[in-house]
């Protein structure tokens, strides 16, 4: 091989090598960005009724005195959002839940376990959720095995539990509702 050709080829190979390495670095950075930005699924809770099983049948009075039916055949899919006045993360989710209930045509129900009725009533007016049923019942939480808040449960029109999970942000709630 001619000497000058060999020199040029070596230099060019080095240049291509540097280019490929920098492209690899760029591709890796894109991969890292993807992992940072990817929405995570609603954290699954394994205890309690399983997804795909019929949801427990319940009839509970809401805070404003309406009789609510859970499970069994329903007119609209039900989205149950378990929250508590003492849970700051829950407040952020209420507007998302309201928006999703409207856009996905779900009947949205807020659930909370015991405590003073007045405290819950104050909370309902503070959050502006008077239009939605609000249930104060430890039984509801126990039936769905809610151990941590905020937790969302989705029941379809046939009364089948479609998804359930701990929802700490908007993406969690969206992926949970999308599973219907």
């Amino acid at each position: 091989m001619d000497n000058y050709l060999a020199e040029i080829i070596i230099i060019l190979t080095l240049v291509v090598l540097i280019l490929v390495i920098s492209m690899f670095a760029l591709a890796r950075q894109i991969g890292v960005l993807h992992t940072r930005l990817a929405p995570t699924d609603a954290l699954t809770i394994t205890a309690g009724p399983k997804v795909g099983d019929p949801a427990p049948l319940l009839e509970i009075l809401s805070l404003d005195g309406r009789l609510l039916k859970f499970g069994g055949p329903l007119k609209l899919p039900q989205l149950l959002l378990f929250l508590s006045p003492s849970c700051p993360v829950c407040e952020e989710l209420i507007s998302t839940a309201k928006f999703m209930a409207r856009s996905e045509k779900l009947s949205l129900i807020f659930g909370s376990d015991g405590g003073e009725a007045q405290r819950h009533a104050d909370y309902v007016s503070k959050m502006g959720i008077q239009d939605y049923p609000y249930v104060v019942s430890p039984e509801l939480g126990i039936k769905f095995d809610v151990i941590r808040l905020p937790c969302a449960v989705l029941i379809d029109e046939q009364g089948v539990l479609r998804s359930k999970g701990l929802v700490t942000n908007r993406e969690h709630l969206e992926t949970l509702v999308e599973s219907i």
């Binding site: 492209m23 993807h34 995570t40």
Partner: peptide, 28 residues
């Protein structure tokens, strides 16, 4: 030089394919 070049190209394409998987699934 060529061996290092080919290995880097291989790694680069692998990474690009993985990135494509990310954008397709939208999750990790």
């Amino acid at each position: 030089l060529m061996i290092s070049l080919l290995s880097c190209v291989y790694l680069l394409i692998e990474q690009l394919v993985r990135n494509q998987g990310f954008s397709k699934n939208g999750r990790i």
